[in-house]
């Protein structure tokens, strides 16, 4: 399971929306396999009766009133970092 193939890496890259160079594909195939082999030490750990921990301080369902707050940030401030813009719209490439 932990020995990844070139095809596995290409599939992961696709899922991750990453384009990789041939050199990267080769390096990642070896490196990520090695890292996954290292973490396999967890396979044999007995965790009978234990539940996973996703939040360490025990907070659950933190909610807030659904009200509009003014954080003092203008629309212009939020739009100033757009790579491509048309008036107040985010301009993106065509989908197909």
């Amino acid at each position: 399971m932990a020995n990844l193939t070139r095809e596995d890496i290409l599939k992961l890259a696709k899922l991750s929306r990453l384009k990789l160079s041939d050199a990267e594909v080769e390096e990642f195939t070896a490196e990520i396999s090695e890292i996954l082999q290292y973490v396999q030490m967890l396979d044999d750990v007995d965790t009978t009766g234990l539940k996973p921990t996703y939040q360490v301080t025990g907070l659950t369902n933190v909610s807030r009133p659904d009200e509009i707050s003014d954080y003092g940030i203008s629309q212009e401030d939020l739009l100033k970092n757009l790579p491509a813009r048309d008036k107040n719209y985010i301009k993106v490439r065509k989908m197909l």
Binding site: V39, L42, D43, V45, T47, L50, P52, T53
Partner: peptide, 13 residues
């Protein structure tokens, strides 16, 4: 389950 959930469970331990 084999990786992420297992890791979070060992975290509990």
């Amino acid at each position: 389950d084999a990786y992420y959930k297992k890791a979070q469970t060992v975290r509990t331990k």
